[in-house]
Design a protein around this nucleic acid. Structure first.
Lengths: 296, 296
DNA sequence: TTACGGTTTTTTATAAATAAAATACATTCC
DNA sequence: GGAATGTATTTTATTTATAAAAAACCGTAA
């Protein structure tokens, strides 16, 4: 089936967002302008213009482009049409491998998984190859893949690596009073205070904020290898949050407070305190993670 | 063209190696036995037997398999036929990307590279995706790849990460007097002493030994993330050795001596000394690497 | 009755095909 | 003459096809 116009559809929706802020009857800019705005090629931009002309949203002839009417919800492409197959598949794959309670050493067959997720084997192969770096699956040449298991060993190795990297990143953050990450820390403080003020139901937003906080800390080292690892780990930890629901909101509130203690110490230049508070938080995070691992 | 029987050809050559140690006329084992020995499936084992029967090397009927004559060199498949396309391609790719002096921000086109290396675009895509983790290339969605450049920044980030990991690994190695990596350290010592005793021309073997030494140190932490990084880095460093040939043999001999100082301190339980010597070596390695980077 | 060999089915490795999207080139209009 | 449009070419994203290799199945002989 090759491609399914996702770039075009997403761009068309974006263009409609753009045009709905304008008055009907007004002249629209050049093709190149639209390309810059939507970050697409001229080919796609022209397809979008042609599509909107067909819908009667605008009139287009040569350089003259006039908006006829405001776009409606009915004109838009549905959200499930604009997601790229690769992105959708990645999400499905993560759901499957991190939520299905696969036993360690389980066999994973590309063809079987492709059928199960309703995607092509080539895509499954890409996903597994990429996920291999996370240390949870391995390839048996000419044969199937093996799930190594989210075991206690895995969790320990992951935590060790994380602590090694993030402690060093924190050290660098504290060492420079003009560190470029500090403005983003101010923003971080605001987000944490806001979330803490809301009620328990808002705690579902914590995992995403946690990932952002740790990625920000990692980015302070300005080392691409740190960032790469932070990204990998955030995927694993994100799913982990949904494994152990016991005392979840209590744990999350406590984690927010720990984050805040770190952030405020950093912002106020109390370096030793920041590092101690961060060590404390890493210890808590480790315990939380290990508590949710099967003791098999 | 799909596959080209590489597994079969490699297995056939291996089988011939196996049989050349036997007397003509003797009975050969079962199919399953051959599978275990060559680590192949019965399908391939039977193809091998059938091939060798056609060549007149053995007689095969049902369970009776008799060796007729010793295999000759002419019977063997040439080495270029047994290498898997993926392996060959990876080697070619590494040669190309690490030896061609690409400027930072150079565009890399999958299709162009496929033509240049004489491999399929799908394979090029796989290679680039995998290499992305090394931090030297990045993808522009819907567009080309970009070579980020073996810059001073890259070298610094790589060294920082390496030192962080390897220092921690060394700490763990020293902390445990019964560490399972110690026997391999004894072997390492022997290899280093041997290489040091040989003449300058043998120094071409140093890069491989260096990679082994650092991988062994990493493995002491028994953490898959350390191992993964050590593997990535060894590829980059391997090629780096061929960039700066000035004073090469002198530098290599010095590095061997530094390795030996570390190994012997470790083996004799002088922990502090081992760590100091290792820090010293990491410092030298950093200087060597940085000296070879373009100052652009 | 069980281990081995013959046969069939499933799965992987690789290449090729196809449409979308990007880019390069040619043309027109101010 | 230069910037915008119209057209052609190249490149990427995705699916499908094919043969090799693995695995499962089944019968048979030691």
């Amino acid at each position: 089936m090759s491609r399914q116009n996702q770039t075009f559809k997403a761009a068309a929706n974006q263009a409609m967002d753009l045009f709905s802020g304008l008055e009907p009857g007004c002249e629209l800019g050049t093709e190149a302008e639209l390309c810059d705005r939507l970050e697409i090629s001229r080919t796609t931009a022209r397809n979008v213009l042609s599509h909107l002309a067909n819908l009667g949203i605008l009139e287009w002839e040569g350089r003259r482009k006039v908006l006829l009417r405001a776009p409606t919800v009915a004109d838009r492409f549905p959200p499930e049409d604009v997601a790229l197959p690769a992105e959708r598949a990645e999400h499905q794959f993560h759901e499957w491998i991190l939520r299905t309670d696969l036993p360690p050493n389980a066999q994973i067959h590309e063809s079987e998984l492709a059928r199960q997720l309703g995607i092509s084997v080539a895509l499954v192969r890409d996903l597994l190859q990429n996920f291999r770096v996370s240390g949870l699956v391995e390839k048996n040449p000419n044969k199937h893949w093996t799930f190594r298991g989210f075991t206690r060993d895995y969790a320990l190795e992951m935590c060790d690596m994380r602590e090694l990297i993030e402690r060093e990143a924190m050290r660098r953050l504290c060492a420079d009073p003009d560190h470029p990450a500090l403005p983003r820390m101010v923003e971080m403080e605001r987000l944490h205070i806001n979330l803490l003020a809301r009620d328990d139901s808002a705690m579902t937003e914590f995992p995403a904020l946690d990932a952002r906080f740790h990625r920000l800390v990692c980015s302070a080292a300005r080392n691409r290898f740190y960032d790469e690892f932070a990204h990998r780990i955030s995927i694993i930890v994100h799913y982990h949050y949904q494994w152990n629901k016991r005392d979840e909101t209590v744990r999350n509130r406590e984690a927010i407070r720990e984050h805040l203690a770190v952030i405020q110490a950093v912002l106020q230049g109390r370096s030793d305190e920041a590092r101690d508070a961060f060590d404390q938080h890493l210890q808590t995070a480790r315990e939380t993670l290990l508590a949710s691992v099967n003791w098999s």
